[in-house]
Each structure stands twice: as C-alpha cells, then as structure tokens.
C-alpha cells in the first residue's frame, strides 16, 4: 500500500497495490440508493402491518389481524367452491344413482375412483394398505377373495355397518382338545393345498365334523354364503398360513369375549362402521365402495 496517494482527486479509498491498482469508492446510482432507503421505510410499514413481533406468550397481531393460515383457508374455500361447482353434476349423480348404475357408467365410475384416492388414503389405508394390498392380519382388498361378499352393495354395507369377524375358540362348541386342534389345523392346510382327501389328514377331517366347523366354513371348507367365514380351500389366508398361526387361530378363536372383554390371544377382526366417521358419509361411502370394488377383485 502506498503511503502517498498519487490520485487524490479520483475518490479512491487510499488502498493501492502494485503501484497502480487501487480501490475506488463509487457510490451506487442514485435510483439504487433511493430504492435502498425506500426499503428501510418499507420495513417499518411491514413491521406494523403484519404480525411481526413475538411476545413471550403471544405475538403482535398486526394492523389487520392477517395470518397466513387464515389466508390459506380463504384460498382453500375458493378452490373448494370452484371444484364443487365444476363437478356438481357428477356429485349429484353419485348421490342419486344406485351403486350398480354407477359402476356401469364408465365416466362416473372413473370420477368416483379418482376422487376416492385421498379418502382411501386417509380412512382405509391405515389397515388395508395404500393400494388395498392389506397388512398382516388385515384383509387384502385387491384380491378376489371376499369374506362378506365382493358385490358392490356388500362392500357398501361393510362400510356403512362395519363388520365384526367371529370364530369360537376350539370349535363351535369349544370342545376340541389340543391334539384335535392340531389335526384340524393340518386338515385345513391340506385343504388349501388341494389334498384334503388324503388319508393322512382324515383324522383332521373327522375333527372338522366334530367341531362343527362346517356350520360356517361349509362342508367342503367353502362357506355356502358370504357370512364372514373364510374359504378354507383357496390360497388366501385371513390370518396366516403358518401351521403355528393356524393352530393359534383355532385354539383362541376370533373376537372371542370373556367377561365382556376380548380373551387373551384371540384374533382381532373388526371393521368399524364409517357412517359416522366419514365426512359427507352418504356419498363418500358410495365413492369408496366403487373404489374398493375397482381395486382388482370386485364382483
């Protein structure tokens, strides 16, 4: 840095390197400086107008009480009104038409499916999975096996009234001993594998009769009507296909109650009613029924 300044009049800062490289002090243009100062003035108004200052237990509310959340809500309402208006006809049809007509009407069906995705995610996916793929001990909705029937009206009824699975522990009369439970477990596993007539499982077959399993599961392991009992002959297991788990299910039953409370180890199988849970339940249950019906296995 030079001690003396050979360029005293050019407004440099006095910082000079290598003989002639010097730092100048050029103020920004006037308009820029004006905008800069205007910025300061702006800050004052901004601070007064908007909720800016936090107190210890609250905050300054601003001149108009504006908040981001309120603005969001207003905008959301505008969007919702627009949407309600745009799809008024579809919504009306959805509410008015019976379900069978809805699934026959391609456009309406597509509309119902598209508008159900979020609802399904909010209310159903917790148990049944985001795509209806099920979860351990919660039924898959995308397959073609239905405990309570896969027709659109039956699906709707499940949503409206809910479903409670029920299976007595140790057979209908509760009279099967541990050995018999194991035999009947082997038998139902064989049924699913297609060798239910094998001699090796004949003992289990006898227990199946004795335990009155056929009352619900049908004489051939296939329920005669959609009564909530599983089809024992197919490849889909309500709980698990592991032998130990099958034994557990038979031993402790499903939703077995003791003194008004669930018995220990019993399987839980409750589908709640959504009539009171869903907003706009009437039309939304219809919508969801169509969605579930279209997941992959509706009948």
């Amino acid at each position: 840095m030079a001690q003396h300044n050979p360029w005293p009049d050019e407004g440099n800062t006095g910082h000079i390197w290598d003989e002639d490289i010097r730092e100048l002090d050029n103020p920004p243009p006037l308009w820029w400086m004006l905008a800069f100062y205007a910025g300061f003035v702006m800050i004052v108004f901004y601070a007064l107008y908007y909720p800016t200052i936090p107190w210890t237990d609250s905050h300054y509310k601003g001149m108009t009480g504006w908040t981001q959340v309120e603005e969001y809500k207003e905008d959301y309402q505008v969007l919702k009104n627009w949407r309600d208006q745009k799809f008024a006809q579809e919504e009306e049809q959805l509410a008015a038409l019976p379900l069978k007509e809805i699934i026959e009407n391609d456009e309406l069906k597509t509309y119902a499916v598209k508008t159900s995705k979020v609802l399904f995610g909010d209310y159903c996916a917790g148990c049944h999975g985001a795509g209806g793929q099920g979860n351990p001990n919660f039924p898959v909705l995308a397959d073609d096996d239905w405990l309570w029937g896969g027709k659109i009206d039956q699906i709707y009824t499940a949503l409206e009234k809910g479903r409670i699975g029920n299976m007595p522990a140790r057979g209908m009369m509760g009279n099967l001993n541990d050995e018999e439970v194991e035999q009947v477990a082997d038998y139902v596993i064989a049924l699913a594998n297609g060798n239910g007539d094998d001699a090796s499982v004949s003992a289990g077959k006898a227990v199946y009769q004795k335990g009155m399993c056929l009352a619900c599961h049908g004489p051939q392991g296939k329920p005669l009507a959609a009564n909530g009992a599983t089809n024992l002959t197919d490849q889909i297991w309500r709980f698990s296909s592991e032998r130990d788990e099958v034994i557990k299910t038979i031993k402790y039953g499903v939703m077995v109650k003791k003194d008004g409370e669930l018995a220990p180890n019993t399987r839980n199988a409750v589908m709640p009613s959504f009539a009171d849970r869903l907003p706009d339940a009437e039309v939304n249950m219809k919508r969801l029924a169509v969605y579930v019906h279209a997941l992959g296995g509706g009948q």
Binding site: G129, A130, G131, G132, Q133, G134, V140, A142, D143, D144, D145, N231, D234, Q235, I236, L295, G296, G297
Partner: peptide, 18 residues
C-alpha cells in the same frame, strides 16, 4: 404399473398385476 401392491395373489393361487 400399480406399485402398492406390485402383485396380488388370487384365491385360485394365480398372481394378478394391475
């Protein structure tokens, strides 16, 4: 291809993709 689930087992044992 549907991602959740990638495939579904049907009651007759066949596999279904959506």
């Amino acid at each position: 291809h549907e991602r959740a689930p990638l495939f579904v087992q049907m009651s007759d044992g066949s596999i279904q993709n959506k």
